[in-house]
Design a protein around this nucleic acid. Structure first.
Length: 710
RNA sequence: GCCCCCGUAGCUCAACUGGAUAGAGCAGCGGACUUCUAAUCCGCAGGUUGCAGGUUCGAGUCCUGCCGGGGGUGCCA
C-alpha cells in the first residue's frame, strides 16, 4: 500500500473527518417517469400532459413537470406554474393559455376545483370523494401506495467501507447509515440494488497487525480473545508510528510557528493603510495570520501532548526506542503480504474471519446489511492488468517513474502506479469498476463517501469513462463499454462535528470508537425512556427488559435519524441531547408518535386486519381528516424525491413536518375512540392505522425500528 | 497560486430546479393537562436570502465581481 506518510489515519475510504461540499454526478439519475400510479402528483402530471398534447404543445411531458405540490395551503393542494414560461414559446398571453389548459384538463374525477389565478397560475383542489376513494385503496395496500417501478435499474451502492484491522469510528457512521438508507429506499421502489462493502483488507493497517502479531503479541490474550488482541496490537503499532511521525514533525511545526509569529509581528508593526482596497487587504492578511498562529500553537501543543503520552510511559517509550524505523518495517510486512509471502498470507487468512466478525457485530447492532463484501484484496490480481491496459490504450503514461493519467482541464494527474511499483487506491477503484461492469453491468454506481474525496472521484470517473470510450472506439468487446451509459455518482457528505464545532474527536484528539458511541447513546436513551415511563399518569408500564429493548431502538435510531435528517452535504454537530430530544425532528419523537397511535388501537381493541380489509369507504368530514388523508397519499412522492438527489432528509422532513405535524393536529381535535360508533369513528381509526403504517415504513426505510409501547 | 463546495430567522432544514406575501421545526415569549400517552397542542415574535451589479414580465435559485467559511491540490485512503 505504500508510504505511511501523509495525512490519513489509515482507514479505508474514510481516513478521518472534516468539511463540506459535494460533486454532482453527470449521468442520468434514478428519476422514474411513468412510475407511481397511486402517486397523485404523477397522475395530475399525466392529465396535464394529455391536455397539453391536445393543445398541440411540444414535449408535453416536460411541461407537465411544472405541476407541483402547492406552495401554500390557500393555493389548494397542487399548482401548475407553466402558463407563464409557455407564453414565451406560444407567444400568447399566459392567462389565456392557462384558461385553455384548464378547459382541456380531464381532472373531473380528481379535483373539485381548478382555477386560474394571478398572471396564470393554475390551482388545483382535490375532491373529497377522490381522497376517500384513494384512501380506501391505500388502507389495505401493504406497499402503502408505493408501486414497484416500471423501469427497474441495476444499482451498485458502495458504502461503509471500513478498515478491517481497525475499529470502526465515528467517521464511518454517515457512509454506513446513508448508504443503507438509499439501499432500502431504492430496493423498495423496485430497483435491483447491490450493496457492496468495499472494505480495506489489504493495506498498511494489515502490515501493522502482522508486525504487531509477530513482535508484540501477548500469548495469553491472544488465546483468550484474539480479536481484541488484534485490535490492541493495531492501536499499539499505530500509536508508535504516529509517535515517530510526530517526533519528526515537531521541529518543522515549531519553525513554522516562529515564522508565522514573526510575520505577524512585522505586519502589526507596519502602519495600516488609511483606507481603500489596500487597507482591506492589510486587515485580511492580518486576520489570516492571527488565525494561522493560533492554529499552529494549538497543533504544537497537541503534538507535545501526544508525544508525552508515549514518553511518560516507560513501556511505550522503550518500544518506541526499540524500533525507530517502525514505519519501514510495517511497510515491509505489507509488501511481503502482497508479494505472496507464505507466512504473511497464512496469517492474513487467519486474521480475516475474526476481524470480519467484529465488523459484523456492529452491523448487526445497526441493522445494516450488504449483498457482497468485496474488499481491496479481492481485486489484487487485477491491478497489474488494469495499469497495463491503460498504458496500452494510451490513456496512462509513465511520468517521473510513476504511471499517471493526465486528464484534460486538470493540473493534477491521476496516479495509478507509484514509482516504487506499488498500486494505489485509484488502481483498486478502477479494477473495481471493471469488475462491477463484468458482473452486474449496472445502470448506476453510487459511492457514498465523504466530500473530501470529490477530486479522487472526479478523476476516477473521468478515467474510467475514457477507458470505456477508447475500448468502444477500437471496437473491442468489453463489458466496460456499457459504462458510457452508466451513472457514476459520488454521493458525498459532510463532517460530524463535536460540540466545539470541530471534527468529532476525543479530548486527546483520537477518533471516537463507533461501538462506545452506540453504547453511550443507548445508555442515554435508557434514562429518557425510564424517566418517561415513571412519569406516566397511571404508573410505569414497562418491565426492565422492555425498557432495555426500547432504549436500544431509541438510542440507535437517534444516531441514525440525526444523520439522515440533516442535509447530507452539510456538517452537523453530534449531540446526544439534541438527537434524543423528545420534541422536534428526531427519531425519538417519531417513535413516540408511532407508539401513541398503536396505543390508541390497542386501547380500543381494534381489529386492525378487519379494519384494513373492510370494503367500506372512509368518510372525510373534518378538514383535518382530509388534510391527513392527503398527506398519507403523498408518501410515494416523498420517496421519489429522496431518490432524485439521494437525500434521505427529504423523507424525514415528510415524516415529521408533514405527517406527524398533521397527525397531531388531527389527534388534538378529532377524538377517535370517543367518537360515536359509525363512519366517523371508522374513518378516524383508518387514518390512525395508516399513519402508524406510514411512520413505521418510513422509519424502516431509514433503517430505524419502532416499538409498540414506550 | 490553482480547483471544488457552501453562505436563507439565534440553531437545523425547506422553498419540487426561474414563479404568488421566502416556509417549517427547535430554542425564546405567552397560553392550554381530573389525557385517546402533555415525549403534546395553540398563539406570538423572529428575514435587506453574505455584499454589489447584471440577465427578464419575475431571481434565494442563472451570470460576473467582491466578502466570509470549509475542503482538495503528483505518487495516503
Amino acid at each position: 500500500m505504500g508510504s505511511l506518510k501523509g495525512k490519513g489515519t489509515l482507514s479505508h475510504r474514510h481516513p478521518s473527518q472534516a468539511g463540506a461540499g459535494f460533486l454532482a454526478g453527470q449521468a442520468p439519475r434514478c428519476v422514474d417517469q411513468a412510475n407511481l400510479d397511486m402517486n397523485i402528483l404523477q397522475l395530475l402530471r399525466e392529465r396535464f400532459a394529455q391536455a397539453l398534447q391536445n393543445l398541440g404543445v411540444e414535449d408535453p411531458q416536460r411541461w407537465a413537470e411544472h405541476v407541483v405540490v402547492a406552495r401554500e395551503e390557500r393555493f389548494g393542494h397542487y399548482q401548475a406554474n407553466l402558463a407563464m414560461p409557455l407564453a414565451r414559446v406560444l407567444k400568447r398571453p399566459p392567462r389565456q393559455i392557462a384558461q385553455q389548459i384548464v378547459e382541456h384538463l380531464p381532472v373531473q374525477d380528481i379535483c373539485h376545483q381548478v382555477e386560474v389565478a394571478g398572471p396564470g397560475f393554475i390551482n388545483l383542489r382535490l375532491a373529497v370523494e377522490f381522497l376517500q376513494r384513494q384512501l380506501l385503496t391505500l388502507k389495505n395496500d401493504p406497499r402503502l401506495g408505493v408501486p414497484q417501478t416500471a423501469h427497474p435499474r441495476t444499482i451498485v451502492i458502495d458504502y461503509s467501507a471500513p478498515n478491517v484491522a481497525k475499529p470502526m469510528h465515528v467517521g464511518h457512521i454517515r457512509s454506513t447509515v446513508l448508504g443503507d438508507c438509499l439501499y432500502r429506499v431504492l430496493k423498495f421502489l423496485g430497483h435491483r440494488v447491490i450493496g457492496d462493502n468495499h472494505i480495506g483488507d489489504w493495506g498498511t493497517q494489515f502490515g501493522m497487525i502482522l508486525f504487531g502479531y509477530k513482535h508484540l503479541r501477548d500469548p495469553q490474550r491472544w488465546e483468550q480473545a484474539p480479536v481484541e488482541e488484534l485490535a490492541r496490537l493495531y492501536r499499539l503499532v499505530n500509536q508508535l508510528i504516529t509517535y515517530h511521525q510526530k517526533r519528526q514533525q515537531l521541529p518543522q511545526l515549531e519553525k513554522q510557528l516562529v515564522l508565522a509569529q514573526e510575520q505577524l509581528q512585522q505586519l502589526q508593526n507596519q502602519p495600516e493603510p488609511a483606507s481603500g482596497p489596500e487597507a482591506k487587504k492589510h486587515r485580511r492578511h492580518l486576520r489570516r495570520l492571527q488565525a494561522q498562529v493560533q492554529e499552529l500553537q494549538a497543533q504544537v501543543q497537541q503534538l507535545q501532548e501526544t508525544l508525552a503520552q508515549v514518553e511518560n510511559d516507560p513501556q511505550l517509550a522503550s518500544l518506541a526506542q526499540r524500533w525507530p524505523n517502525l514505519e519501514q518495517l510495517v511497510l515491509q510486512e505489507t509488501a511481503k503480504l502482497h508479494a505472496g509471502d507464505e507466512e504473511n498470507r497464512r496469517l492474513w487468512e487467519q486474521f480475516m474471519p475474526p476481524c470480519l466478525e467484529v465488523l459484523q457485530r456492529i452491523y448487526r447492532r445497526l441493522g445494516v446489511q450488504f449483498d457482497v463484501t468485496l474488499g481491496e484484496s479481492f481485486y489484487h490480481d487485477r491491478l497489474p492488468g488494469v495499469v497495463q491496459e491503460l498504458l496500452e490504450l494510451g490513456i496512462a503514461q509513465e511520468s517521473q517513474g510513476a504511471v499517471c493519467v493526465f486528464l484534460p482541464d486538470q493540473q493534477a494527474p491521476f496516479v495509478i502506479r507509484k514509482s516504487d511499483g506499488a498500486f494505489l487506491y485509484s488502481t483498486t477503484d478502477l479494477a473495481t469498476i471493471q469488475y462491477r461492469m463484468e458482473r452486474w453491468a449496472p445502470d448506476a454506481i453510487l459511492y457514498v463517501v465523504d466530500h473530501r474525496q470529490s477530486l479522487h472521484f472526479q478523476q476516477l470517473f473521468a478515467t474510467a469513462r475514457l477507458w470505456a470510450k477508447r475500448l468502444q472506439q477500437l471496437g473491442r468487446r468489453s463489458p466496460l463499454t456499457k459504462l458510457l451509459q452508466t451513472e457514476l455518482t459520488h454521493v458525498s457528505f459532510g463532517t460530524i462535528l463535536g460540540p466545539d464545532g470541530k471534527p468529532f474527536r476525543t479530548r486527546a484528539g483520537d477518533t471516537v470508537g463507533l461501538e462506545s458511541l452506540l453504547e453511550e447513546a443507548v445508555e442515554h436513551a435508557l434514562r429518557i425512556v425510564s424517566q418517561n415511563d415513571e412519569a406516566k399518569p397511571h404508573g410505569p408500564e414497562l418491565s426492565p427488559e422492555q425498557r432495555r429493548r426500547v432504549a436500544e431502538a431509541v438510542g440507535i435510531g437517534a444516531i441514525k435519524y440525526a444523520d439522515l435528517s440533516h442535509h447530507r452535504t452539510s456538517d452537523y454537530v453530534f449531540s446526544y441531547e439534541k438527537m434524543m430530544s423528545t420534541t422536534g425532528n428526531t427519531a425519538t419523537y417519531m417513535q413516540y408518535a408511532y407508539a401513541r397511535i398503536r396505543s390508541i388501537l390497542r386501547r380500543g381493541q381494534v381489529d386492525v386486519q378487519a379494519l384494513r380489509e373492510s370494503p367500506q369507504e372512509p368518510m372525510l368530514e373534518h378538514p383535518l381528516e382530509q388534510q391527513l388523508a392527503w398527506t398519507l397519499l403523498r408518501f410515494p412522492e416523498a420517496l421519489e424525491e429522496v431518490v432524485q438527489d439521494y437525500r434521505p432528509n427529504l423523507l424525514t422532513n415528510y415524516l415529521f413536518e408533514d405527517l406527524a405535524t398533521c397527525f397531531t393536529a388531527f389527534y388534538e381535535t378529532c377524538p377517535v375512540l370517543q367518537a360515536p360508533e359509525g363512519p366517523t369513528r371508522y374513518t378516524r381509526l383508518v387514518l390512525c392505522d395508516l399513519t402508524a403504517q406510514v411512520i413505521r415504513k418510513g422509519l424502516e426505510l431509514l433503517g430505524i425500528e419502532v416499538v409498540e409501547q414506550m
